[in-house]
């Protein structure tokens, strides 16, 4: 027995489906208009949207302010990039304890990126989730910095110079070259994640995660393993951010430690807040908005940060529902 969905939820579905229709049409329209050069930007938007939506699971639903999601994004990118790099150089990625070769197969690389980022998130989460509030913010930040320097320390992957990739991954033996294939991969990943995440946030798991945000003690008293639920959410979130990183690595043909930096972590949070936390679709919208802002404003003025800064302030102080809340006219919360 389900209650009829409140109007803003119905509006949300309509908006999401309209958005999907636009995104499906975009490659054809842009190619017809001879504006295909916008596709790489859109692909980046989709990838960051995926990363931001993943962060939203822990930040928006779990109330856990992770200031270290750049580490998972970057780890995914480096794993995907390293696999291409070693496949190109015909050297093994790992000699010990087991020998792992590079790979151009997306069906190997993307899961590997998610797995590595997820494993990292599990480790970081296992330590960080024992803390609360400011401690959690600072500790995730510090662990992300640690990962940043650890990756910089690997001579094979270019340090601060970044890692140039000789090719892109291949899917079912078709190279993801050109503008369109990777765009579709990114779109499918995003839609897939949103669908699954939307369901599970409404299911027992999501309710428990949200419940722990509202009242941790009560959830514990009710017998929910709060720590374990959070750790699972954190791990999945990290893994999906890693997937986004793998898309970004392929798109850019270049992996840079910049992806692991704390500024990247900060931008992911901004995307979530700009779009509206705890809405999944909002952070995607936030990612599109932020990157569009960067693309358009940086072409007009080099001081575009002076626009973004006050905007962000205004968002925090006055518009706490975010973009998505405006779109679906959701009642204010929090």
């Amino acid at each position: 027995m389900r209650e009829p969905a409140p109007p803003h939820v119905r509006r949300g579905w309509i908006a999401a489906q309209a958005g999907l229709a636009v995104l499906v049409a975009a490659p054809f329209v842009l190619t017809a208009l001879d504006r295909a050069w916008l596709l790489p930007t859109l692909t980046r938007m989709l990838a960051y949207g995926l990363g931001a939506a993943a962060l939203d699971v822990v930040l928006g639903y779990g109330g856990l302010v992770s200031f270290g999601h750049g580490a998972f994004l970057g780890t995914g990118a480096y794993v995907a990039g390293a696999l291409i790099h070693h496949a190109g150089a015909a050297t093994p990625l790992l000699r010990w304890p087991v020998e792992i070769d590079g790979s151009l197969d997306a069906l190997i690389a993307f899961p590997a990126a998610a797995l590595a980022a997820g494993a990292l998130a599990f480790l970081i989460g296992a330590v960080s989730l024992r803390t609360r509030g400011v401690h959690f913010i600072m500790i995730t930040l510090a662990f992300a910095q640690m990962v940043y320097f650890l990756v910089l320390a690997i001579p094979e992957y270019g340090g601060t110079d970044g890692l140039m990739l000789p090719a892109r991954h291949r899917l079912f033996d078709l190279p993801l070259d050109g503008d369109q294939p990777l765009y579709w991969v990114a779109l499918v990943l995003l839609v897939g994640f949103l669908t699954i995440a939307q369901r599970s946030m409404e299911a027992r798991f999501g309710l428990a995660l949200r419940g722990a945000r509202q009242n941790e003690r009560r959830m514990r008293a009710l017998g929910y393993p709060v720590f374990r639920i959070r750790l699972v959410a954190f791990t999945i979130s990290g893994a999906v951010a890693g997937l986004a990183g793998a898309v970004l690595a392929n798109q850019a043909g270049f992996v840079s430690p910049d992806l692991l930096s704390w500024q990247r972590s900060g931008e992911l949070i901004i995307m979530v807040i700009l779009g509206g936390q705890g809405t999944l679709f909002g952070p995607v919208l936030g990612a599109f908005a932020l990157l569009l802002l960067e693309e358009e404003l940086s072409a007009v003025t080099e001081h575009w940060m002076l626009v973004l800064g006050p905007l962000l302030l205004a968002c925090v102080l006055f518009f706490r529902r975010g973009l998505w809340g405006q779109v679906v006219r959701a009642p204010a919360h929090g």
Partner: peptide
């Protein structure tokens, strides 16, 4: 703390650019 982090992060952007 999230609002504090974001608002003061915004201040960093404004300060650097100014």
């Amino acid at each position: 703390h999230l609002d504090q982090v974001l608002a003061t992060y915004a201040l960093i952007l404004i300060a650097n650019e100014s």
